[in-house]
Design a protein around this nucleic acid. Sequence first.
DNA 1: AAAGCTTCCAACCGCGCAACT
DNA 2: GAGTTGCGCGGTTGGAAGCTT
Length: 291
Amino acid sequence: MSTVTKKGCNPQEDIELRRGPWTLEEDTLLIHYIACHGEGRWNLVARCSGLKRTGKSCRLRWLNYLKPDVKRGNLTPEEQLVILELHSKWGNRWSKIAQHLPGRTDNEIKNYWRTRVQRQARQLKIETNSARFRDVVRWFLMPKLLQKMPYQSSIQSLNSTPIQLNTPPESLSFIEQNTVNNPYYSDKSISEGWSPSICSNSLNITQFPQISEFPATPQDFGYIDHSPLLKESYNSYESEAIQLASTATPGFNYPYYDSSMTENPCIDDMADSLWNMDEIWQLQKLQGRSI
DNA sequence: AAAGCTTCCAACCGCGCAACT
DNA sequence: GAGTTGCGCGGTTGGAAGCTT
């Protein structure tokens, strides 16, 4: 805990302002003050509550941590999907995005984006503000999140045939470059994504996937969801996506609902990653063409 | 077991805007 | 209109926790 002196009008008014992590006592003071006087007027809160904090610090602590409706815990796949969709619309407008996620703070969303999404982009050596990255999000990450949603279990039963990945991808050169030369991919969790059980053929990769040549709106892959926001954005996912799969590649079962996927230890190991190389392969296979 | 590294997130900072004087 | 104050936003940082070697 550090302190900084705030100068008053005379030396007697100098205040030692506290910084760093909040203590239980400080939290209690702030909660009690707001319970009695309400939110807002943060500088007044800071002065009158007995807290040796700035108004800003009080506001931040309340909004991001103490406020009763702040949700704790990991973001759900649905919430992650909302973030991805809204970020593609609005960019780093964290507070605006947070307005569509009740109980989640802009700070939390910002942290999620920086620690999870940007990390994945770095691993693929793609700029997060590029069209290419938006395509990756749209075609790989969003389906991956859809797969994780609770309602998918009922859909899985409709598609029980294991995925056959007999043909290597033809256009994943950027991934190959990144994996061969990038130390990150020596990481166990990533290398397992390329395990022989999944990728039986040698790589013959010649060009980067041209994702952008495909329809690029969220509606293009369709979506079903329980939130009004996403209902506005997406159509029925299972019907359209599966239809897309079946028409693009006859005889091919839509991978994201395939029960065998969840039994695959390689996939399970990657469950906490946003996407992995298998999924890129599978999506490409789903499309039946280069992506 | 311990050192080094990475990840995550709470908290801070600077800036801009709006309301008020 | 200029200055001040309060507030909110987005970017950044520091340290705790977890992981790897």
